[in-house]
Design a protein around this nucleic acid. Sequence first.
DNA 1: CGTTATCTTGACGTACATCAAATGTCGTGG
DNA 2: CCACGACATTTGATGTACGTCAAGATAACG
Lengths: 239, 239
Amino acid sequence: MPAQTLSTATLQPCASCGARAASVCNAVPDADLGRLAAATTVRTVPAGAAFMEEGEPAAHFFNVTAGTARLFKLLPDGRRQILGFARPGHFLGLAPADAYVVSAEAVEPVRVCRFRREDVHRLVREFPALERRLLETASNELAAAQEGMVLLGRKTARERLASFLLGWATAGRSCAPAARELHLPMSRGDIADYLGLTIETVSRTLTALRKAGLIALPEPSEVRLLRPEALAAIAAGEV
Amino acid sequence: MPAQTLSTATLQPCASCGARAASVCNAVPDADLGRLAAATTVRTVPAGAAFMEEGEPAAHFFNVTAGTARLFKLLPDGRRQILGFARPGHFLGLAPADAYVVSAEAVEPVRVCRFRREDVHRLVREFPALERRLLETASNELAAAQEGMVLLGRKTARERLASFLLGWATAGRSCAPAARELHLPMSRGDIADYLGLTIETVSRTLTALRKAGLIALPEPSEVRLLRPEALAAIAAGEV
DNA sequence: CGTTATCTTGACGTACATCAAATGTCGTGG
DNA sequence: CCACGACATTTGATGTACGTCAAGATAACG
């Protein structure tokens, strides 16, 4: 199912964008938001649909403004590694060469702002702060990927789940409270492919955490963190 | 053993640097190399010594000009994940906050150019091409870390070793031939911590590859790739 | 030449994967 | 409203790739 283009610039474009504060767009001053809006196309991607594919020519950058997407790579035989989940404010499409190196699909309906590559290069020349912001973004992504390598290479299933739940609780809210009630829009299969485990192990480990009194699971996709400090200790790998 | 400072700028500074072509320094035009040299301090780091430590204030950037370093993160109980090996041309120290997020140690004696953070920020303003280069570097690092996540999350021991050997064979030489004779300066323990395995599994898997006629091991640290195509197929995860 | 670190090899254990089935959960249509 | 099938999640039984423990073998070193 292909993603659908809605409009090439709505009437109230970037100024009222809820994701702006958290995104690279905040490098462009309010007065110049028109320039930004002129370069973007808003797209709505239905759940399950892809909007960026590994290997395809990297013609666009994307900025998620609503919903959740999964970023992943596939091996030829179908094994999948999810590299992360993109939520509002997340910038996508940085590619070392001229082809995307990761794929992106909507987990739940997603809205993205799409920018043509040349337009971004032009904007970067006009607003040098934007390049600074992009470098900052890339650094953050890199640090996250390195943390991911530690998780995948050296943590146990229990530690991986604890890390995932806490990460999801704090994602987005930059320096804020860390939610205790989580909604997980992705399936157990997505979580498994993110943590380098199987669906069964994810399920079993979650019920183990529940039976240990660390979390509650009112529904499969709703998690309450009952003892965040204990989860944090597990996630950090403390004995 | 602490790293030792040699000189604050040698007589023939950056112009004769063998690592320049592969490093971010090539964003500075030849005529301005004096400005670059004035901002750098050359340090020699003996094998085994650390020169960057996770959690420390990120006061400097580093550019490896000789030798091999390991980049890693530790868990509190000592588990280690090596994120990669830095060879000449490798730029280090991009940190999202003001503290390093990874540690670096010399595997074999290393020479690095050290830049104070403020100096780099000043240079970036003077040479905008440098910021472009830094973004490019960060993108490459990110792609490498994402590839690392696939390796750690979804590949078998055999596939990990094949990936590692081919990666080492092509590292550095950007678009060039891919060596068939490899020298591995790092220990089996380093390889294990890079691939998310144990020393024993690394050793066993290497002898399995040798017995399968895919590689030769004249010495533990010398590898000859006998059938690179077959290794590539294994590394890619083809069945 | 001992001494010590590194690497290899073997025997055995285990955390997680695989296979299989039961149990929800939800949308669809009778 | 309820029967039905498709699908996601959970749970159980069993398998296995890799880890752990323990020797040797080999090489580096004073």
